[in-house]
Amino acid sequence: MTDAPMPDGLTPERLAYVEQVANFWQAGGLGHAAGAILGYLTVCEPAAQTQAEIASALGLSAGTVSTQLRTLAGVEMVEKVRRMGVRTHFYQLPQDMWVRLIGSEDRRIAGLRELADAGIAVMPATRHDRIASLEQMVRFFEHEWPLLSKRLEEFLRKEAS
């Protein structure tokens, strides 16, 4: 493949990357369109794009893009930004979004702790593993996640210097 830009500004290689990201997130439970938007916002120039630009580049309907942008903004994977003197909203990945996303695991682990504790209170008579395995996994991450988070912070600090 050549590196020549396509009419929408994407090279074939970048478009293939967008599809790879879309497939990754789709396999993880996110919609294909949401994954494609994440992939596109990872490699597009400029980094902030309008809803119409995203829809055009990806061949998606305005409604699909609007719905998926709301979903992605709700989980802080996309942010809406304004430009002075421009009425249109632009969308981009937040600064250091991937690091922040991993950092939000503390909240997820705490939420899973609440679910495990509530499940223990209503433990079914059969197949205790349905709750016991959740509680066991939560205990593991409660112990290991702070250690891993600290190592990540140290790594990022070294990378920045």
Score class of each variant (00 low, 15 high):
Asn23Glu: 04
Leu69Glu: 06
Ala125Trp: 04
Val86Trp: 00
Gln49Cys: 14
Glu153Ile: 09
Thr11Arg: 08
Leu156Lys: 07
Arg127Thr: 10
Pro94Leu: 05
Val75Arg: 11
Arg14Asp: 13
Leu112Thr: 03
Gln68Trp: 02
Ala57Trp: 14
Gly103Trp: 14
Leu60Met: 09
Glu53Ser: 02
Val122Ser: 01
Leu93Cys: 08
Asp129Pro: 11
Leu58Met: 02
Leu101Phe: 11
Arg157Cys: 04
Val122Asp: 01
Asn23Arg: 05
Arg139Lys: 12
Ala116Gly: 04
Gln26Asn: 07
Gly39Ser: 08
Gln20Leu: 03
Phe155Tyr: 07
Glu19His: 11
Arg107Trp: 02
Leu152Trp: 06
Thr67Glu: 04
His128Val: 06
Met1Gly: 02
Arg108Thr: 15
His128Leu: 03
Glu114Thr: 12
Ser66Gln: 14
Glu19Gly: 04
Trp145Gln: 12
Glu45Asn: 13
Gly31Pro: 07
Gln26His: 05
Glu154Trp: 12
Pro12Ser: 07
Ala4Thr: 13
Glu76Asn: 14
Ala55Met: 12
Ala27Val: 10
Leu134Lys: 08
Thr11Ile: 09
Gly85Phe: 00
Val86Thr: 00
Ala16Ile: 10
Pro94Asp: 05
Thr88Ser: 01
Ile120Met: 10
Ala16Gly: 13
Ala110Asp: 07
Leu134Ile: 13
Pro124Val: 03
Pro5Val: 11
Glu114His: 12
Val86Cys: 00
Ile109Asp: 07
Arg127Ser: 06
Met137Gln: 04
Arg157Leu: 05
Val18Lys: 02
Arg139Leu: 11
Trp98Glu: 09
Ala116Ile: 10
Gln92Ile: 09
Met84Pro: 10
Met77Cys: 15
Arg157Glu: 07
Gly74Asp: 04
Glu159Cys: 03
Val65Met: 14
Ala116Lys: 11
Tyr40Glu: 04
Tyr17Ser: 07
Arg14Ser: 13
Met97Gly: 04
Glu105Phe: 15
Gly39Phe: 11
Leu41His: 08
Glu76Leu: 14
Val65Asp: 13
Ala62Phe: 14
Lys150Ile: 06
Ala55Leu: 12
Pro12Phe: 08
